[in-house]
Design a protein around this nucleic acid. Structure first.
Lengths: 248, 248
DNA sequence: ACAAAAGTGTTCCTCTTACACCCATGA
DNA sequence: TCATGGGTGTAAGAGGAACACTTTTGT
């Protein structure tokens, strides 16, 4: 065997959003798709890497194109490098539509967390993209379903270890929203008293002057995430005196 | 900008070993190196990806060539994709010695954990490679020092979360050896009473019939890692009732 | 008045931490 | 007999888990 040349590198992004009830992922329609294309229509947003661009830059570019958002939370995960992961018709389709001649496409998976607000939904809808519940994902192009599964697994792990949840919530949110998000992503029930105690004790939430309005029940307090308190805690906690609770 | 073609994908491996005192990393000499080469001599083991080979396969191949070992613990970490990470003289050197014409090399970092036994040391020494203390790493080729730093950081995180330590120890080891390993990698002091309690309570260690011999003190019990007990615990622990101790 | 979600405290128990001495062996 | 590292127990404190009722609002 010889060194692989004529290969391409791409990024594919699993973009997650939270609508207050369930976790959603952004799926786009394959460009140039016609009904007689014998390939699956829906896919994750992705792109080939350009000259003079790093992988994170490529992922940001994809994200901005797909959602209109800059400065999105982005995290690299696995690389998918099976020599056959894009082959046959899929490979022809890529070469035809990109005007290149590649023999192999290795892709780097990213996952992104966005705040699902009205402008973002409008933007994506206008582009023909869909926010699909992660519980009911249809067939996807190439190995995108596998990439998505990997992203979901990684998101669960991240949620337990760092405060990425706030990337999925609006700037102001209620504690119940935060709790619902954890429940939805992790698929577990959470006791609200314990949750409030823990999250408030952390000192990472700052209460705002606002409360919910127009709800048919006691209105909830809005909080914001106090990122600087979090960063301060990070520094201090770097002393881990003993081997902290390993998680198997 | 246009789609990047004429690029290569490589893997670079930070191979860690433990000699009972300190953590070591395997550095090799650049092939075809002559003293007038204006490039750094030492580097991490690595290789270009071959046709028909996945990245993990490439990493295994590199590992076997560097250490003579198959079935080594291997973990993918970051991708290093700065367009300029290999350029100028380095890029020329690569093209000359591989007989290719690449314009850009993106590399995937792996870290590997090996048991530093006599045959392995003999093998690597015969190949002119060196096991260097991670505290005193010299200049390395390209961005390999950065790759190594990233590997070390990742290793620390992994050590706290899963029982990878055993990959660095011989099949039979004493609890003190295990403790020394944790201390060395994490750079912390560990109380031996608490450590023994915790590690023995986990049920992952099986005592063997053997004890240390020929030491000028009370001989220590040898243990082996009970992987099946660990896997059993894994399954049961997947219920995480509440949001387990997040670590910031 | 009622429906609906917000918000609040206590008890039990486990796990973490800090800490000091005797034991078995080879020299 | 001494030097060396192996091996042991306990008490105090922190944090996790289980549990039910009152409050505030809109209709």
């Amino acid at each position: 065997m010889s060194i692989q040349m004529n290969q391409s590198l791409s990024v594919d992004c699993a973009v997650f959003g939270f609508n207050g009830r369930t976790l959603k992922v952004l799926l786009i329609e394959r460009r140039y798709y016609t009904s007689d294309t014998p390939l699956d229509k829906l896919k994750l947003p992705g792109a080939m890497i350009l000259e003079n661009e790093t992988l994170p830059e490529a992922a940001s570019r994809v994200l901005e194109e797909a959602t209109g958002l800059r400065k999105v939370y982005l995290k690299q995960m696995e690389i998918f490098s099976d020599p056959q992961r894009v082959s046959g018709e899929e490979l022809q389709w890529i070469n035809r539509h990109h005007g290149i001649r590649t023999e192999r496409v290795v892709t780097v998976g990213y996952y992104a967390l966005v705040k699902l607000d009205a402008p973002t939904i409008a933007y994506t809808t206008a582009k023909g993209a869909q926010w699909v519940d992660v519980e009911s994902i249809p067939r996807l192009a190439m190995d995108h379903k596998q990439i998505l599964a990997s992203a979901l697994a990684m998101l669960c792990r991240e949620m337990l270890q760092s405060p990425v949840a706030f990337e999925l919530l609006p700037r102001k949110f209620t504690i119940r929203e935060l709790q619902t998000l954890y429940s939805a992503v992790l698929g577990i029930e959470i006791d609200n008293r314990n949750f409030r105690k823990k999250i408030l004790a952390s000192g990472f939430l700052t209460p705002t002057a606002e409360k919910e309005q127009g709800v048919a029940h006691k209105p909830a307090q809005y909080y914001t995430f106090n990122r600087s308190a979090y960063k301060r805690a990070l520094k201090e906690k770097l002393r881990l005196g003993f081997i902290n609770n390993w998680r198997y």
